[in-house]
């Protein structure tokens, strides 16, 4: 067991959390090591965002979106699936472990699931070494 608090970037589609309670929790009570990036749709997530997160030293990236056929923008999540799933596979190909990029598709009726998923993710990441695989110099290129 390696003792560190993993840094997690949570990309959240702004529609996927159905219950107001969950959304409030994500908006206001996320642990400090988890950073929320709200996007209009998972389809909005450019692979470069994920790469930037990874390069910035994030130990894990979690992407939460709506279930297929429940996408607010018809099929944004399906587009995201193709690109991001492939990107994660590709990162794995060059040595950034596949399970550091995690997707959750939240059903409308999954109350409280986001908290459980994040906790699980954090626990999994804690067991892995800190991500240095792709880290660039910290803050090296933010404007």
């Amino acid at each position: 067991m390696i003792d560190h608090k993993p840094k997690i970037i949570l990309f959240q589609c702004q529609w996927c959390l159905y219950s107001a309670e969950d959304q409030t929790w994500v908006d206001t009570q996320l642990p400090v090591n988890i950073h929320l990036v709200k996007v209009p749709c998972t389809g909005r997530i450019n692979t470069l965002y994920v790469l930037n997160a990874v390069q910035g030293g994030a130990d894990g990236v979690m992407i939460s979106g709506c279930l297929p056929e429940q996408c607010h923008f018809k099929e944004g999540n399906l587009g995201a699936r193709r690109q991001l799933d492939q990107f994660a596979d590709f990162l794995d190909h060059i040595g950034y472990e596949r399970n550091r990029v995690r997707f959750t598709w939240l059903d409308l009726q999954d109350r409280g699931r986001i908290q459980r998923d994040l906790a699980q993710f954090e626990a999994d990441l804690t067991k892995m070494p800190k991500s240095e695989a792709l880290a660039t110099r910290v803050g090296g290129h933010h404007d």
């Binding site: 159905y18 219950s19 409308l108 009726q109 109350r111 409280g112």
Partner: peptide
């Protein structure tokens, strides 16, 4: 339109 449940 929807009933949701707290699973615990």
């Amino acid at each position: 339109s929807e009933i949701t449940e707290d699973s615990e």
